[in-house]
Simulated assay, not measured.
Amino acid sequence: MSPQEFQRLLQGVTAGVTAQLDGRPLDASLADWLNATWPVGSATYDELADACRVGVTEGWLCNREHGGIRYGRVIKPTPDTHGFSVDVVDMQDIAGPHHVHPHGEIDLIMPLTDGATFDGHPAGWCAYGPGSAHRPTVAHGQALVLYLLPQGAIEFTRDASVA
C-alpha cells in the first residue's frame, strides 16, 4: 500500500465516520456511541487498524519522531472530512506532551501489544470534549492511536510537566 492509497482509503473510511460525527456533541456519550457503532472487530475498525499497521510497517506512516513518540498528520481538515484532521501516533509505554483540545478530540485505539491501553482505555474509541486536556499515555505495551481533531485544533502547553 502506498501513502496515496492509504490516504484515499482513510479519506473514504473517515469521511463515512466524520459524516456521522458532524454536528454531534463531543461528550462522554460519544465514545459509547462510537464503540457501539464501530466496535473492535467491526469492518470499519479492522480496515482502519490494518491500514495503519501496514503504513507503520512500511515506514511511511508515523515517520516523524520526537521524545520516543512516532507521529504524523495524515489528512488535514477539509470539507471531505467534515473539518476533522486525521493524525496517527505510535507510542509504547510513554506519556506524550501535555496539550489542550480546543474543540475536542476523538481517538481510535489500536493496541499492537495485547492489553496495551491509551489513557487507561483498551482497544476501541474514546472521546474528549472541547477544552479538555491531557498527557496522552500508552501503558502496558505499544499502541497506534488514530485521532480526529475538529478543525485540526490542538494546543501544546509550554510546561510539559503539567499533568
Rank of each mutant, 00 (worst) to 15 (best):
residue 137 T to W: 06
residue 102 P to V: 13
residue 157 T to I: 06
residue 17 V to D: 02
residue 57 T to G: 04
residue 107 D to M: 06
residue 64 R to Y: 10
residue 116 A to D: 11
residue 98 H to E: 02
residue 104 G to Y: 00
residue 140 H to I: 03
residue 51 A to M: 03
residue 129 G to D: 09
residue 17 V to H: 01
residue 128 Y to G: 06
residue 90 D to C: 08
residue 114 D to H: 10
residue 153 A to I: 04
residue 140 H to P: 05
residue 60 W to Y: 15
residue 83 G to K: 07
residue 67 G to N: 13
residue 36 A to Q: 14
residue 14 T to Q: 12
residue 4 Q to N: 12
residue 85 S to W: 05
residue 46 D to V: 09
residue 23 G to M: 08
residue 62 C to H: 08
residue 155 E to W: 09
residue 3 P to I: 00
residue 31 A to E: 14
residue 101 H to S: 09
residue 133 A to N: 13
residue 104 G to N: 04
residue 115 G to R: 07
residue 132 S to H: 14
residue 74 V to M: 14
residue 61 L to P: 04
residue 129 G to Y: 08
residue 112 L to W: 05
residue 159 D to T: 10
residue 78 T to E: 14
residue 147 Y to A: 01
residue 160 A to P: 05
residue 56 V to L: 06
residue 95 A to P: 07
residue 64 R to F: 08
residue 151 Q to I: 01
residue 24 R to Y: 06
residue 86 V to R: 00
residue 163 A to I: 12
residue 114 D to P: 14
residue 36 A to K: 12
residue 134 H to S: 12
residue 106 I to G: 02
residue 66 H to C: 08
residue 114 D to T: 11
residue 94 I to F: 08
residue 89 V to C: 03
residue 30 L to F: 14
residue 112 L to G: 15
residue 58 E to G: 05
residue 89 V to A: 12
residue 152 G to T: 07
residue 106 I to C: 02
residue 45 Y to C: 00
residue 9 L to S: 11
residue 84 F to T: 06
residue 105 E to K: 11
residue 121 H to Y: 14
residue 159 D to C: 07
residue 24 R to H: 09
residue 158 R to I: 08
residue 160 A to H: 09
residue 19 A to Q: 13
residue 5 E to R: 02
residue 131 G to C: 03
residue 162 V to R: 15
residue 106 I to W: 02
residue 5 E to P: 04
residue 115 G to N: 08
residue 88 V to M: 02
residue 40 V to H: 00
residue 62 C to S: 11
residue 156 F to G: 09
residue 134 H to K: 08
residue 33 W to F: 10
residue 105 E to C: 13
residue 163 A to S: 14
residue 46 D to E: 15
residue 110 M to Y: 03
residue 144 L to Q: 02
residue 54 V to W: 02
residue 120 G to K: 06
residue 26 L to G: 06
residue 43 A to K: 12
residue 3 P to R: 02
residue 96 G to Y: 06
residue 30 L to G: 14
residue 16 G to N: 12
residue 28 A to D: 15
residue 147 Y to Q: 01
residue 45 Y to Q: 04
residue 21 L to K: 12
residue 10 L to N: 09
residue 52 C to L: 10
residue 47 E to D: 05
residue 105 E to R: 09
residue 2 S to W: 03
residue 141 G to L: 08
residue 137 T to Q: 13
residue 38 W to G: 02
residue 114 D to A: 11
residue 130 P to R: 13
residue 146 L to E: 00
residue 136 P to S: 11
residue 115 G to Q: 06
residue 83 G to T: 07
residue 140 H to Y: 12
residue 32 D to V: 15
residue 123 A to D: 12
residue 92 Q to Y: 01
residue 93 D to N: 15
residue 87 D to L: 14
residue 104 G to L: 03
residue 99 H to G: 05
residue 61 L to G: 05
residue 66 H to G: 12
residue 24 R to T: 06
residue 34 L to E: 03
